[in-house]
């Protein structure tokens, strides 16, 4: 059976100040408190430039939720890394434009809180 639990990816945009720090911090804090599993990366742009294999694993997931910046930028960054995101099953929230509430709501929709680690 296909696993459809969402994989959550948070981009911290560490190397630039284009994402409002208050939104970033709020989203991260609420993800941290939520008890769901997630991956957090310092900077997706940097990973794309390095063609980081971790992007391949994220792109291979059937259901992915990403908190970063503009969806068009995120999509073509994965492509540039050689690991294009699938057309379906990917939801990108834009922390440059959306509020922390909107982003967190999309990231955590229908996710069960965690129990123990896997």
């Amino acid at each position: 059976m296909t696993d459809t639990r969402p994989r959550i990816l948070y981009c911290n945009c560490t190397y630039a100040r284009v994402v409002p720090p208050s939104v970033k911090r709020d989203v991260l804090r609420r993800l941290s408190d939520s008890g769901v599993a997630f991956d957090a990366v310092p900077d997706l742009c940097d990973m794309a430039a390095r063609k980081d294999p971790a992007l391949a694993r994220i792109a291979a997931s059937p259901c992915t939720r990403i908190a970063a910046c503009y969806p068009r930028a995120v999509r073509w960054l994965f492509h540039a890394a050689g690991h294009p995101l699938p057309d379906d099953g990917v939801d990108v929230s834009n922390m440059r434009e959306q509020t922390a509430d909107e982003v967190v709501e999309r990231l955590l929709a229908d996710t069960a809180p965690a129990g123990e680690a896997r």
Partner: peptide, 27 residues
């Protein structure tokens, strides 16, 4: 939350594994 933010700001990838969620596999 403080550890997460400090690690990311210093260039480390962070995984928070939990039951019911997917994270990057070991590589």
């Amino acid at each position: 939350a403080d550890a997460l933010a400090a690690l990311l700001d210093n260039g480390f990838e962070v995984t928070r594994p939990a039951l019911g969620g997917e994270v990057a596999d070991a590589d």
